[in-house]
């Protein structure tokens, strides 16, 4: 906080993977212009990656989807890795998720393929540095906004990520070896119970469909990305087919005419016109974002009050100081 920022290149891309995007907490306040929120698909692992390094809420973290990425350290630095097990190695030695390591100049960080979960979060002490676009670093490829270059691109060969050198040396002794508690290290291979706040057009669905929605397992389809995740199961029947488009919140469970629900995530379009069962909680969205195709998930009804309490407990853990209001959120 006190030392001036000393910007240096921290990591260089040696080999690009399928998708690696810089994400802060998201882009807020501009959704009325058709700009989506972006931000981490798995808020839980993203928050822990920052928290292990005492980074402030919202510091930009690299979201690595399905591995395949190779990075070279161009400086000594302190890193935290949370979320999916993507067979990460540091100079070919296994690097376990949910902990802090110190990396020296020239070391190679390599990600293999997804063994558990889909997305890993790599944080650096002080956060990765990038120019905010429309108030945020959140990288949304479809909109060409944010990320390391400001234009929404995924990390490509020879791209560089910048860090604050002044944060690295002091953080090494303090944080190396720090780990997230066991109960936070989620086994993403287990069936996921996704809490859903019923609402929207739920009363327009048939009784049989409502029973099926909450009492049968669903399976994650291969059509899953940062816009949304499609679920496979018994087709749900709704008396409405399409509606006048309206604003769509994060986690909205929409059901197009084929009866297969789509859970809308961070990069969704801001408005939509399919009937919805309700809204997943933010932590349920986070959990779903770690599910690989064919994984089993269950929808579990939840009250808004309980879901809000759960979210507040989650957030208070990361806001060491008193809640400063909306400012911390943006």
């Amino acid at each position: 906080m006190t030392a001036p920022i000393d910007v240096v290149c921290g990591l260089r891309v040696e080999k690009a993977g399928p998708l690696a995007l810089l994400q802060d907490a998201g882009r807020f306040g501009v959704r009325r212009l058709g700009v989506t929120q972006g931000g981490p698909a798995d808020l839980h692992a993203w928050a822990w990656a920052n928290h292990l390094l005492d980074n402030p809420w919202g510091a930009p973290v690299l979201e690595i989807t399905l591995g395949g990425l190779e990075l070279i350290a161009e400086h000594d630095m302190t890193l935290a890795l949370c979320g999916a097990d993507l067979e990460a190695t540091l100079d070919d030695k296994p690097w376990l998720s949910w902990q802090v390591v110190s990396v020296t100049q020239g070391q190679r960080l390599r990600f293999g393929s997804a063994r558990s979960g889909a997305r890993a979060y790599l944080a650096v002490a002080g956060g990765f540095l990038a120019e905010p676009v429309l108030g945020s670093v959140a990288c949304v490829s479809r909109e060409g906004l944010g990320g390391h270059d400001g234009h929404g691109r995924s990390l490509a060969m020879a791209d560089r990520l910048h860090i604050d050198r002044s944060c690295q040396a002091s953080s090494r002794e303090r944080y190396v070896g720090r780990r997230a508690p066991g109960k936070e290290r989620i086994d993403y291979r287990e069936p996921a119970r996704l809490r859903l706040i019923p609402g929207a057009q739920i009363s327009e669905f048939s009784g049989v469909s409502l029973f099926a929605a909450f009492n049968r397992p669903w399976h994650v389809d291969s059509r899953a990305d940062r816009m949304g995740v499609r679920l496979k199961g018994p087709p749900l029947r709704c008396r409405l087919s399409t509606m006048i488009s309206e604003g769509i919140p994060l986690g909205a469970v929409q059901v197009p005419p084929d009866g297969q629900p789509i859970v809308l995530l961070n990069d969704r379009q801001t408005i939509g016109g399919y009937p919805r069962l309700g809204t997943l909680t933010p932590l349920a969205c986070a959990r779903l974002a770690q599910c690989l195709p064919e994984q089993e998930v269950w929808l579990v009804a939840e009250t808004p009050q309980h879901a809000q309490e759960e979210y507040r407990r989650f957030r208070l853990r990361f806001d060491v100081t008193a809640v400063p209001g909306a400012a911390s959120h943006r």
Binding site: F28, G29, V30, R31, R32, Q37, I244, S245, E246, G247, I248, P249, T270, I271, P304, Q305, Q308, Y311, R312, R315, D319, V323, G325, A326, A327, S328, H329, R330
Partner: peptide
């Protein structure tokens, strides 16, 4: 005021996002 996070007006509706750390539902 500062507890407003986002608004999405659309044809017939307005979606209003507030800060859930400050305001209850």
């Amino acid at each position: 005021a500062s507890t407003l996070i986002d608004m999405v007006p659309s044809y017939t509706t307005l979606l209003v996002h507030y800060d859930p750390l400050v305001l209850s539902s």
